[in-house]
Design a protein around this nucleic acid. Structure first.
Length: 176
DNA sequence: CGTCTTTGACCCGCGC
DNA sequence: GCGCGGGTCAAAGACG
């Protein structure tokens, strides 16, 4: 993914505010640690001005196209300020380290499973060390699609849900 | 009847 | 080499 995609993604989310679902507060790519994520969220001084909602359906619908990422391992430096703030130091090692494309969202939601227009099949659940909340692992149920998704609740604010996407879809959308 | 969840076991990388 | 933490598999059941 490149910064253009990220920006587009964020924009799409902002647009989706009207769809009745809360917007992600954060997006990150590549490697990130829990602490980095938390601090990144805390460090964000801007907001999209969205409200919360209980209805998660149609969250990503309309912005699914933004999810077709592509390999671009060395575009971290171009990320928006908010993301850079997350780990200016870590970015150095991030760039060195070979990581898959990874995007993390922190959403304020009651439900973990956000309907993003794709069909997901849960394949694992795990209790993480630093959190009282379990972590759920989902895989795109479309054949040949390598996209994985990891969902866990914020360990401080259980009202927040952290969704991490990994990989890129082979298909535009499984539904439709 | 086909698809998805659940859940423990298994596996793998890493630090000690 | 072992233990631990994290990620995945797969059998069985639930669900439509």
């Amino acid at each position: 993914m490149n910064d253009a995609d990220i920006t587009n993604l964020a924009t799409s989310f902002s647009d989706d505010t009207r769809s009745g679902f809360e917007l992600p507060e954060l997006y990150l790519s590549d490697e990130w640690m829990d602490d980095d994520l938390v601090s990144a969220v805390s460090g964000m001084n801007h907001s999209y001005g969205y409200q919360t909602s209980d209805d998660a359906s149609a969250f990503f619908s309309g912005s699914s196209s933004s999810f077709s990422h592509h390999e671009s391992p060395s575009t971290n430096a171009s990320l928006p300020a908010a993301t850079v703030t997350a780990s200016s130091e870590n970015q150095i090692k991030q760039q060195k380290k070979k990581v898959r494309e990874r995007v993390a969202f922190k959403t304020r939601s009651e439900v973990e499973v956000l309907d993003d227009g794709f069909k997901w099949r849960k394949y694992g659940k795990k209790m993480v060390k630093n959190s009282p909340n379990p972590r759920n692992y989902y895989k795109c149920s479309v054949d040949g699609c390598p996209v994985k998704k990891r969902i866990e609740r914020d360990r401080d604010d259980s009202s927040f849900v952290i969704t991490t996407y990994e990989g890129s879809h082979n298909h535009s959308s499984s539904m439709a």
